[in-house]
Design a protein around this nucleic acid. Structure first.
Lengths: 244, 244
DNA sequence: TTGCAATATATTGTCAACAATCGATCATCA
DNA sequence: TGATGATCGATTGTTGACAATATATTGCAA
């Protein structure tokens, strides 16, 4: 993709160079496709079709799908099929309650590690989010909002916690994407995150923890109301893309 | 458990029967083998060998391994190999701090749902644990202790929380198994869990939350001390089974 | 002896074909 | 007409062979 860099492997901070395999690329692209809404909730995924689409064999594709299944984005029934998870109001409850717990813990861990760079980065991400909202770019807004919240997990230095955040993040992105796709609601979200950032830069940890609980509560209400509207029966087991 | 009911498909609660595939069986057996210590921390797993051992092709075996990789029990480097995770004192910190957060949340969720069956089951599992400890059966003790703690996650009715517990549970079991294998320490663990059960049956949620924090703190100290002893350099990247 | 380059081997990544299973369709019969 | 059983197409599960890559070994030269 890029031009020819002379030879730059002399970097002092070589973490790992990503030794590319098909499985990884496919998993990323599949995940992106799902989260972008190209494959909405309940949509079926057939291996042969996707394999042809990605121009690879079914082997690597299956393993990529298995990765997304473990992530909770896909569900599969042996010998029958695989499809994107459906929307359930109960899942929303669980996701947001979990977010509250994890993000409060993340702030407790990261609170004393907030340095100048953290504050700079937080404000930078907030600026990105604000710009995306003002521009009316839904996809970018979701990404920016997730990145904003992701910072504290990174700052916590807690790998297990970060891992859990990634697990939640995927589902959350899926719900938000469906939400925005249904009716693009740019609401009072700027203000909501203003208070979040302000507390995160402040001196009171307990105030921050309260802010999280409130912030999440508002988000949960919004998302839950949408899902209840989109799926009034709360019975997502057979909600395919087809509508009768 | 029950005798032969004549023909009971008219039952209102048919959940699902588990459509067996090789992948699932292999994943279970592999996980069991790792957690039982047959494949200790750092031990390499080669696909061809295991495939022959399980008498299946590499395909299903790879997918089973991928499952354990996602679980965090195995790590893999493309084109190079896969091995069981190694022991790190930092991981212990993360696991136990996460346990505190999750189990406190689990009790908050389950507190008002504790019914007669919950109390019975809690005491039953405590009895199983006590029996295993008294019998000196390390393997059974670990299983019983995990089952005891698992009850509150089941009672919480929070699937996402339960999922997170499973992710922790695997790593924890791995560490404990290594711990017990190194030097079978049957210590004051009976009493420790006595107070745990007592609080769980009591009326004060805040007392229970405190008990968790203390309980986990003691467990973390014990496990951490062991790992520091077993792996004094805290540099597990290349800790294979071989010792120079 | 030490350092380096070429080679060899072991291991994983990928592929295409075959087998097993499921769900729906359709014919058959009471 | 209604229900029951067989058939068909579609999809996933499984297999064995082949290719790509990384690590270990060996030989050589300074």
């Amino acid at each position: 993709m890029s031009a020819s860099l002379p030879l730059a492997p002399s970097g002092p901070r070589i973490d790992r160079l990503p030794k590319s395999t098909f499985r990884q690329h496919i998993a990323e692209r599949l995940r992106a496709a799902i989260l972008a809404g190209e494959l909405g909730p309940g949509a079926p995924l057939v291996e042969t079709t996707l394999a042809a689409q990605f121009a690879v064999s079914r082997g690597p594709l299956r393993e990529a799908m298995r990765e997304l299944i473990e992530e909770g984005l896909l569900v599969t029934v042996p010998y029958t099929g695989t499809h994107v998870i459906s929307l359930s109001v109960n899942d929303i409850h669980e996701i947001y309650s979990m977010r509250i717990v994890l993000e409060r813990f993340a702030f407790e861990q990261a609170w004393d590690r907030r340095d100048a760079q953290f504050r700079r980065e937080l404000q930078r991400r907030m600026a990105v989010l604000t710009a995306a909202i003002d521009a009316g770019d839904d996809r970018a807004s979701i990404q920016a909002e997730l990145d904003l919240h992701g910072l504290v997990y990174e700052a916590s230095g807690h790998r297990l916690l970060q891992r859990s955040w990634f697990g939640l993040r995927g589902r959350l992105q899926l719900y938000w994407a469906a939400h925005h796709r249904a009716h693009a609601t740019r609401g009072p979200r700027r203000d909501a995150h203003d208070s979040y950032v302000q507390a995160a830069l402040g001196q009171s940890l307990s105030a921050m923890l309260d802010e999280i609980t409130n912030h999440m509560g508002r988000g949960a209400e919004r998302t839950e109301a949408f899902v209840r509207f989109a799926n009034p029966f709360d019975f997502p087991t057979t909600t395919t893309g087809a509508l009768t």
